[in-house]
Design a binder for these strands. Structure first.
Lengths: 258, 258
DNA sequence: CGCGCTTCAAGTGCATGCACTTTGGCCGCG
DNA sequence: CGCGGCCAAAGTGCATGCACTTGAAGCGCG
């Protein structure tokens, strides 16, 4: 990722740097949906002025990772359940394009690179979930990058990141074991040029991730506090264990990158 | 009609306003690819400071409509031929999703609205091309909006705008007559819930727009001057008018769509 | 004891100023 | 006559200051 850093396009890069950092923090769930991102705190943390931080926030907002509300502190986006489903749906469509594009056209080097990445995933399996999620996401982004189509790259990256977001909202502990083997199988199919098969695998892969991970709309984790409180408003009969303090918000003052 | 749209999200709206204006200017080809967009000129024109103009430019850059180069004046993006093809390809994938989502689910009011829009297209047929293009684009955006899926809306809008851009680079005078009847037919199929048929129509529609409009890579109008000059640099023997001389990236045939 | 109003601090919205970079013209030199 | 370097104008990069908005604590009133 430090590769094409200073191409000379894109904003100076301090903005880019902040974006990348924030994105990473978000997909690793160091920043949960709803986390506040005050401009000055950001600026201070990254050693830049609010102007830059603001710009970065703007970019991230354009990608749908943060929410900007006028005169309010920016927050990490909290996609609705419906949006989450849509996101996966669209992602599927986009990744099919990737597969179609790539099938039978992968160079040996590319295949090797992909395999190496999956090896890394394997290795990180016992590490923190955050890392597995990031690696799994990066695998897909890597595929997109290999299409060499800037637009496709952008869209797939964006949506993959958004998926991480929804995952961090609506998923349970996470289980990425099968994902890894599915990644391997996908590589094989792509390398062999079995387009249809590869597409089917991608379908199945994403579909299973979605249905396995996306747990029903019942209780969105970091969602609006009012949602969490909702069941308590109904009746005062033994509320389930929810270790969240009511008013003050357990987040303390400003959160920034971990 | 330029009044609302600010539910309270998004930037203050002066930024939004500039974005919208610029987008419109771009898709109507009042601003050709490569056109310069200096911050202060923009700011002056819209009665705001460079800060705002800059922010707008940033948004547009995120959408791929303008290009930002460090320390240089921002310009309207000039997608390469390859990107143009990719764009249409991806667009097709996205619009298929739209169709699938919409098929058989359109309310009477929606159908009416669509038909009214196509009527407007019909009416504008003798007007300037710019308007026809805008209307045709808006038709597709309108469809996307009806899916009620924010992400899909965003992506389709974005890519539709980008297509306008490529059209203004690589298309001939334009002929949108058939597009109108195709729009009508599409509405009918959608209303009738004939998903497969509707998808096929969308395929055909976009494909024909692409292949009809996108005239070969021969002479990209506003594209990098170096490309145009390349064949002349080789030898001074009568430069052919279409020959692809440089060893540049493959203009090689790529699956358009299935 | 609770409820609404006031007041204040945190935070954003935006403009402006200054430094740095790029560009293109001008001039002197070969 | 051409060519390469200097210089000013134009433009961006970024920080900072001030006005405005918002949320909430504090306070008085019922």
């Amino acid at each position: 990722m430090a590769r094409d850093e200073d191409k000379d396009n894109r904003v100076t890069d301090r903005v880019g740097f902040i974006c990348r950092s924030l994105r990473r923090a978000i997909i690793e769930q160091a920043l949960e949906p709803g986390a506040k991102l005050p401009e000055d705190a950001l600026g201070e943390r990254f050693g830049v002025s609010r102007t830059i931080a603001r710009h970065a926030l703007g970019q991230l907002a354009a990608e749908g990772l943060v929410e900007l509300r006028r005169n309010r502190i920016a927050v990490v986006a909290t996609p609705s359940w419906q949006e989450a489903r849509d996101t996966f749906d669209i992602r599927l469509g986009l990744e099919r394009l990737v597969v179609r594009q790539l099938s039978g056209r992968l160079t040996k080097a590319q295949v090797a690179k992909l395999q190496a990445h999956v090896d890394a995933e394997e290795e990180a399996r016992n590490g923190p979930d955050a890392v597995s999620i990031r690696l799994a996401t990066e695998f897909h982004v890597m595929l997109a990058v290999m299409t060499d189509s800037p637009i496709l790259i952008r869209y797939v990256s964006e949506i993959a990141y958004r998926c991480c977001l929804t995952l961090s909202l609506y998923s349970r502990p996470h289980s990425s074991e099968c994902a890894i083997s599915e990644h391997r199988a996908l590589i094989a199919a792509l390398a062999a040029g079995e387009t249809e098969k590869a597409m089917g695998m991608m379908d199945h892969h994403l579909d299973s991730v979605a249905s396995r991970a996306l747990v029903a709309p019942g209780k969105p984790r970091g969602r609006d506090i009012m949602d969490i409180l909702a069941p308590y408003a109904e009746a005062e009969t033994a509320p389930p264990e929810a270790g969240k303090a009511p008013a003050k918000g357990g987040a303390g003052r400003r959160k920034t990158t971990a």
